[in-house]
Computed example of a mutant assay.
Amino acid sequence: MQAQPAQELEGVATTLRAHGARFAFVHGSAAVPGATAPGDIDVAAWFGDARVDGLAVAAALPGWVDLLTLDRAPLELGGRVALTGRLLFEDDPPVRVRWQAQTRKLALDERHRVERAARTSWRDAVVDPERLHRLLRGVTEDLAWLRRYAAVVRAELLADPARLGHTKYLFVTALEGCVDVGHHVVASEGWRVPDTNADAMRALAEHDVIVDEVARSMAKAVGFRNLLVHNYAEVDDERVADYLNDLGDLDRFVTALTALLED
């Protein structure tokens, strides 16, 4: 897919402004001049309020936009945007300059720490075990709820908007947790920079953290998460019910990353 036309990105900027964004960047491969963009365009926006509802903002954007909310972004992602992102718009230049300078400094300091740690045991010195345990615990709790809904008679679930809506929300939060885990491990190890959230899963497989089969399944699941976020009202409820009967690779992902911490 070629880069989105400038007028379409202007529409993205207009939507972000309407939701209170004060500046935004295009990042990932789409930020490289002349590069062929992936299926999704990565956009990072700063709102000046960590309470902003990122899901609501993302739902208002076109389906080809993958939104990162900088107010709550982990350092490895925010730093990457600050270092390599291409400015989409800014309505508060002093705030943008201050954020970008501070985040670049923190990211470069962290990069130096990672490079030093790479010469020692990476499990002890690079990956943050407490953070990964917290993220994996959240995914595990979401999976427990999803299994409860999987046990509900399919027709009953599809006829219950409350339970169906909660199921969709749980898929979004569980998959976002998996994405955060993937990016943290990849960035902490200093491996190649993934182009997209799905590519982070492939990067884990390249280094034998998860097997190829799980990586392919998780990449598709991340695409399903994007569909839920961007086209919530148009998602086929039957497809949601189908995914409830296919939670095995999410379990395998959690098991593999938990084992990584315990080695």
Rank of each mutant, 00 (worst) to 15 (best):
A44W: 02
F23M: 01
A151R: 09
F171K: 02
R119I: 11
R252F: 03
E156I: 12
Y169V: 07
L106Q: 11
D199M: 03
G20E: 03
R154S: 08
V240D: 09
D195P: 00
T196H: 02
L164E: 04
W191R: 04
V97H: 06
A200Q: 05
M201A: 14
A3W: 00
H184C: 06
A3T: 06
R123G: 15
T14I: 05
G248P: 00
D109F: 12
V114C: 09
A155Y: 02
E110K: 08
L67I: 06
L261Y: 03
E130H: 06
W122E: 05
L70R: 01
A3K: 07
T14L: 14
T69Y: 00
R113L: 15
E238P: 03
L9R: 04
L77F: 01
V95E: 01
E110F: 04
H166P: 00
V240T: 12
P93R: 00
E90H: 00
Q100W: 02
A221M: 10
P74L: 15
L108R: 14
A44D: 06
G223R: 02
I41L: 13
A151E: 12
L67R: 01
R116G: 11
Q2G: 12
V179A: 15
E156W: 07
L146R: 07
D251R: 05
L83Y: 00
L16V: 13
N231W: 03
N226Y: 05
D160V: 09
A73W: 02
D236C: 10
A162F: 11
V65G: 07
W191G: 02
D40K: 14
V214M: 10
D160S: 14
L70M: 13
R154D: 10
T140L: 11
G20N: 02
G63N: 12
V43K: 03
A24I: 09
E234C: 04
A174S: 13
V32W: 01
R72V: 15
P38W: 13
P74A: 15
A118H: 10
V172I: 15
D109M: 15
A203T: 08
E176R: 08
G78F: 02
H183G: 03
E76Y: 12
D246Q: 12
R192D: 12
D142N: 11
E238N: 15
